[in-house]
């Protein structure tokens, strides 16, 4: 038995679309839905697609906000460090934060893939995401608390999802911009104050490939990632051996 969808319900489902889609295709979609042979399935199909379109319409704003968050947090953290140097200076290698960032990246990449928005990781994706790691790393040194960790997670998922839609140009440049800002805010002052050349090298390994943004740099980018993982593992082993790991993890 065929069940026709009431007109008010058709209008309600179509209304979920953002205005630009509704104005362009709303009448046609409503027309097909009204004469559908499988109304329930088609209503669900329209509703699901409308929600996806609705998400797409706000993701640009979300991306900007989420990418700005680590940079802003770094700036605030730097201001706090200057105001209260005893509490926030020193503080060893935030290994746990780096590991968390990598875990978040993997989760974000998987989420992007599941959402169907990110294709296989292209050469530009790796430097772009590593630039985000740098931003997360530096921000989370100061504010790496669980609620904010969720913010980082959302940020990276957003980056991956949007990158799949926008392509390399915008995503990589936004990530690069965020990373360079953090680099200036966080790494350069550290270089001047305590001669942290390892931090400088680490930052360059992460940021430089993002600026080049071409397939030929994929090898260098991969090497950077491998080096970072290796250095992180060494740092973990060292901290474990001297019994400092629990304190670092606990912040």
């Amino acid at each position: 038995m065929s069940v026709r969808i009431p007109g008010v319900l058709v209008a309600g489902v179509v209304a979920v679309y953002p205005r630009r889609v509704r104005d362009r295709y709303g009448e046609e979609i409503a027309g097909l839905l009204a004469v559908s042979r499988r109304p329930v399935r088609d209503a669900v199909d329209v509703l699901a697609r409308a929600l996806v379109e609705r998400t797409r319409s706000v993701e640009g704003v979300l991306l900007a906000a989420l990418l700005a968050a680590p940079v802003l947090a770094s700036a605030v953290g730097e201001a706090m460090r200057l105001a209260r140097p005893r509490r926030l200076s020193g503080g060893g290698l935030p290994v746990a934060v780096v590991l968390l960032a990598f875990a978040v990246l993997v989760a974000g990449a998987l989420a992007g893939h599941v959402l169907g928005r990110a294709r296989a990781l292209a050469p530009w994706a790796v430097p772009g995401l590593l630039a985000v790691v740098l931003a997360l790393h530096n921000a989370a040194v100061y504010v790496g608390r669980p609620p904010l960790a969720l913010l980082w997670l959302l940020g990276v998922v957003g980056v991956v999802a949007v990158a799949g839609r926008w392509g390399p140009a915008v995503a990589t440049r936004v990530c690069l911009g965020a990373a360079v800002l953090v680099w200036h805010v966080r790494v350069l002052p550290g270089l001047r104050s305590d001669g942290g050349w390892l931090g400088y090298v680490r930052a360059m390994l992460l940021v430089a490939p993002a600026g080049l943004n071409r397939g030929a740099v994929a090898v260098a980018t991969t090497a950077s990632a491998v080096l970072m993982v290796f250095a992180t593992a060494l740092g973990l082993a060292f901290l474990w051996s001297v019994g400092r790991l629990p304190r670092v993890v606990a912040g």
Partner: peptide, 13 residues
Amino acid sequence: TRPGPGTLYGAIG
């Protein structure tokens, strides 16, 4: 398979 209206117009867009 007959595509639903949402899928159809998503791809058309």
